[in-house]
Amino acid sequence: MAKKKAAVSIRECVACGCCIKVCPRNTITVPNGIHAVINRELCIGCGKCVKECPASIISLEVTE
């Protein structure tokens, strides 16, 4: 079955961290304040971060 995972457009990320707070699985961090990083192993593709991101630069990508 095709699974969806969140992916950040790193170059455009403003590192505000709005996505961190909404993720139900706590999979997002902003290491060194540069851009968000999503732990794809844990991401369930719920899309909450996609909706929240003020710059709208997270998308759900189909994996497998």
Binding site: A15, C16, N32, G33, I34, E52, P54
Partner: peptide, 25 residues
């Protein structure tokens, strides 16, 4: 007009702290 925290996209403090972090890195 846009998303609740749209200000964070162009907030000068946010931009500046990100720049500092990038430079430090």
């Amino acid at each position: 007009l846009f998303k609740p925290r749209s200000w964070c996209v162009y907030c000068p403090m946010g931009t500046m702290t990100q720049l500092i972090c990038k430079a430090k890195n």
